[in-house]
Amino acid sequence: MRRSEFERAVADEFGARGGSLLTDLVLSACGGRTGVEALAAGVDPREVWLALCAETDVPQNRRYGVGRLEPRRS
């Protein structure tokens, strides 16, 4: 997941509260860091996205592919 896909996914899923979730919510799966701290430390955006989804109980069917402009083709 690219950083732009990550940002789009956060905006699509959380709307206006996405920014505050990234700065305030501590993600245990990212070493007890916030999303912003994890990204700054070099954690892969996909890992941060999945941790954010887990902490906020986003259903599984909305965790993969959110934020992509188009699905990948095989």
Rank of each mutant, 00 (worst) to 15 (best):
G31D: 02
R33P: 00
G19E: 04
F6T: 15
V43L: 10
G42C: 07
V43G: 03
L25H: 04
G31M: 08
R46I: 10
T23G: 06
A16I: 10
D44A: 15
F14A: 07
E55H: 14
E37H: 06
R2I: 10
A38E: 05
P59S: 09
C53L: 10
W49T: 00
G35T: 00
E70M: 11
E70A: 14
M1T: 12
S74R: 13
L69R: 15
D12P: 00
R62G: 05
A41V: 03
G32I: 08
S20P: 01
R17C: 05
R72S: 06
A38T: 07
E70T: 14
L52V: 05
A16N: 06
L25E: 03
P59H: 04
D24R: 12
S74D: 12
R2W: 08
A51Q: 08
V58L: 14
A16L: 11
A16S: 09
R62Q: 14
E13Q: 15
E55A: 15
A29Q: 12
L69G: 00
A9F: 03
A11C: 03
S74M: 04
M1L: 11
S28K: 07
T34S: 10
G15H: 10
V48K: 10
M1C: 10
T23H: 04
S4M: 08
Q60D: 15
A29S: 09
E5D: 15
G67R: 05
T23S: 15
R2F: 09
S20Q: 13
A11N: 07
E55K: 15
A51D: 05
R72W: 05
G18W: 09
P45H: 12
P71F: 07
G19W: 00
A29C: 01
R33M: 13
L39C: 06
G31L: 09
L50S: 01
V48R: 10
L50N: 02
M1G: 15
R33S: 02
D12Q: 15
P71G: 03
V66I: 11
P45A: 14
S74N: 10
C30L: 02
V36T: 15
E5W: 03
P71K: 11
L52H: 06
R17W: 00
G31C: 04
L25C: 07
F6Y: 11
Y64H: 12
V36Q: 09
Q60C: 03
E70Q: 12
L25S: 05
V43R: 14
R63P: 02
L21E: 01
F14V: 09
L50V: 04
Y64P: 00
R68M: 13
A54F: 08
D57P: 01
L25P: 01
D57N: 14
L22K: 01
R8I: 03
A16H: 11
D44K: 03
S28H: 13
R33C: 02
L25R: 11
L69M: 09
V26P: 02
L52G: 08
A9C: 08
V66C: 12
F14Y: 14
L22H: 01
F6K: 13
E37K: 08
L50T: 02
P59R: 03
S20M: 12
T56D: 02
G67T: 02
R3T: 07
P71D: 01
A38W: 09
L39Q: 04
A29P: 01
S4N: 13
E13F: 08
F14K: 11
L22A: 04
W49D: 05
E37Q: 15
G35W: 06
L27R: 02
R62V: 04
Y64Q: 12
R46H: 09
